[in-house]
């Protein structure tokens, strides 16, 4: 039974004029996703853009559910809606984004960007429709359930999975190193050295130099 080739070989049986229920739901949710994505990239209010991104990514989670990728859908909800959008909101707040409408949210070359995006959309949609017009996805229940995904992930994809954890650790360390503040402060005590009777940072030539250059502080 060649299930993988069952799709392209029966082109005439499925018509676009009689969509199934899954297709209707997919189309409606897809329209919502596209609309909220367009609002995300065009709105003048920066915080609203992040909130419309929530709608777009949540709709994509529903699309994943409709494509029977159950585990991916919940990972999408957890990571994108849970952490990425919160990080983006933190980024907007920490860079002092204006709360109201900001008229300079869009760059001056937005018409060029619109042209490029429309050209890319036209090319990609034409190509994709021409290539996969007759392809039929045979959706079976449980194709992407947690059991199936976990089995394939921990049986065939263990090594990339572990490499990914190393990558996450490196990203964590990098983010901490990047966001550390490098302001002037007194030298901290070195580890493994007992300093009895002296206040912290009052010994050593470097500390004396810093103490002479910095304004005197109250003890």
């Amino acid at each position: 039974m060649l299930l993988a080739t069952a799709g392209p070989l029966d082109p005439a049986t499925r018509s676009f004029l009689s969509p199934t229920g899954v297709e209707v739901v997919f189309l409606l949710v897809g329209l919502a996703v596209l609309g909220s994505a367009v609002i995300t990239v065009t709105t003048k209010q920066l915080v609203h853009a992040a909130l419309w991104l929530v709608v777009s990514l949540g709709g994509l989670a529903i699309e994943f559910l409709l494509l029977t990728a159950e585990f991916i859908a919940w990972v999408q909800v957890l990571i994108y809606l849970g952490s990425v959008v919160v990080l983006v909101l933190f980024g907007l707040m920490l860079t002092k984004a204006p709360i109201g409408r900001s008229p300079d949210a869009d760059s001056g070359n937005r018409w060029v960007a619109l042209g490029v995006a429309l050209a890319a959309a036209g090319t990609l949609v034409t190509l994709v429709v021409d290539a996969f017009r007759t392809s039929w996805v045979d959706l079976g229940a449980g194709g992407g359930s947690t059991k199936v995904t976990g089995e394939s992930l921990f049986r065939h994809w263990v090594l990339p999975f572990e490499a990914l954890s190393v990558l996450l650790l490196a990203a964590l360390v990098g983010a901490i190193v990047l966001s550390r503040t490098r302001d002037k402060r007194l030298p901290r005590p070195r580890a493994g050295k007992l300093r009895a009777g002296k206040p912290v940072g009052s010994n050593g030539p470097a500390a004396r130099v810093t103490a002479s250059t910095t304004p005197p502080q109250e003890s």
């Binding site: 199934t20 596209l34 994505a37 699309e63 959309a121 990609l124 949609v125 996969f132 039929w136 996805v137």
Partner: peptide, 16 residues
């Protein structure tokens, strides 16, 4: 489901 629906949606989303 036709493969065209998710593929076209992905193409449009990428362009956005």
């Amino acid at each position: 489901m036709h493969l065209v629906y998710p593929a076209v949606l992905a193409a449009l989303l990428f362009s956005v």
